[in-house]
Design a protein around this nucleic acid. Structure first.
Lengths: 247, 247
DNA sequence: TCGCTTCTGTTAGAGACTATAACTAGAGGG
DNA sequence: CCCTCTAGTTATAGTCTCTAACAGAAGCGA
């Protein structure tokens, strides 16, 4: 819908914007957020300095666009994983699959993941779409908690989430999009916990803080998700042969 | 040892350095890492521009110092909580207490916490003391897992950690400083999981990504730590009345 | 006490970057 | 076919990091 492309001019404009963003991504990959400089982008794209301001209001606007794209991309990856997951699979395995999809995307594009989940340090500009983006990524996780039976330890959070779903109609509807009515609190609690643990595990791994430690990020995440599945009583743990995934 | 203070000159130097750091902390609190500017610090401290380079080699050096201090401070807070915790208390409650101490520090000084756990975006300069700092913060958590009996889901991670402790003598000794011999893998796994989940929960809360969601950070962290304690078989869950902590 | 050394501070300036202002040429649309 | 709006230009202001060259003063040993 955003296309529009009312004429050849708009088309060319979109093309230039895309080129700018691509070069920005390159700089991001090389030196992090701080390395994204409009002047250098301009030089590389063959324009001169201020011309870029025809395409992006400011450096922050460009970064916000990159964040938006990254969220969309990650969301698509999770969505694809959810779509590919067999309908008759266990909820536990679904949770593992989706979590692994997030991690795989993050490991493949560390800089973009840091852009998303990173602390809003650069210009302290909290992009407002962050919430929507996170919600889109998290959506497919809701269904993992269909009919879950959370352990006692989970109760306080489940209660708070149920109340939230009751007070905010949009949130309630969103939660019900993943699980049947009545399970909103559980599903929201599960999704938020998943998000939090993903943020912790993947964020630390991607930012290199696990280097030199005796474990690999995949195992850590698998273990965490497994424990989370236990906490929500997802399926039977049954017999889990524990060979760590070969990364 | 670091004192030295061989003369009045060194004393004055230390004083000026402290003043610079304090002003930098103020700027950090107002606008994040990006807002810390040497020129403005100089203006505020009554010096002129390049004079600051007599006290810090570069802007990054100043930030590294702030990071070092923050780690030390957080470590001290955790240590104090550990020291204040009764020797005959349960390991589960100890875990909750230490985790709450970390969160309390982070909530009280969000900018400094973000400086620590934040992604290395600004200059992409990974300060090498990060590892030591994290280890100091994590140390007191080791003892929470004394004699723990990890659930099946934890096994892969425990195994990896045990191997790590076996291969790296220093790590093994560190782990044994918290728990008796034989429990290294379990303790390390517990500590790393705690760190990861703390990072996730506290980082998201402090960076404001929970705003507008129907839960409070304290409950989320409590629930997570409780589930973690379950996963490691710490004490008896017994009867937990679940009133959420009033924040 | 004298004089050397070292430390602390200064101004000047190079270089990178964001962003605005004023202006120009040309492409599209009515 | 002309008029307008757009995409580009150069010039410029202002901020920031960091280096260079230099000046004054405090400390220290003989």
């Amino acid at each position: 819908m955003a296309a529009g492309a009312s004429g050849p001019r708009a088309r060319y404009r979109e093309q230039t914007r895309a080129e700018i963003k691509q070069i920005a991504l390159g700089q991001l990959a090389e030196g992090g957020t701080a390395a994204v400089a409009l002047t250098r982008i301009a030089k590389e794209v063959g324009l001169s300095g201020p011309a870029l301001y025809r395409y992006f209001d400011s450096r922050d606007a460009l970064l916000s666009d990159l964040i938006r794209d990254a969220y969309a991309d990650l969301g698509a990856a999770v969505d694809a994983a959810a779509r590919a997951y067999p309908a008759d699979g266990t909820r536990r395995a679904r949770l593992q699959t989706l979590a692994a999809a997030v991690r795989a995307w993050a490991v493949a594009e560390p800089h973009r993941y840091l852009l998303i989940e990173g602390t809003p340090v650069p210009g302290y500009t909290a992009p407002p779409d962050t919430l929507d983006g996170a919600r889109a990524v998290l959506g497919p996780f809701l269904a993992c908690f269909e009919g879950a039976e959370p352990a006692a330890a989970m109760r306080p959070l489940v209660q708070q989430m149920a109340q939230w779903a009751a007070e905010d109609a949009a949130v309630g509807a969103w939660a019900r999009s993943g699980v049947g009515a009545g399970g909103e609190g559980t599903a929201l609690a599960g999704a938020v916990l998943t998000w939090t643990q993903l943020h912790g595990a993947v964020g630390l791994e991607v930012s290199g803080q696990f280097r030199g430690m005796g474990h690999d990020g995949g195992t850590l995440l698998t273990v965490q998700m497994d424990a989370l599945a236990d906490s929500f009583g997802l399926d039977r743990p049954s017999q889990r042969p524990h060979r760590p995934p070969v990364l």
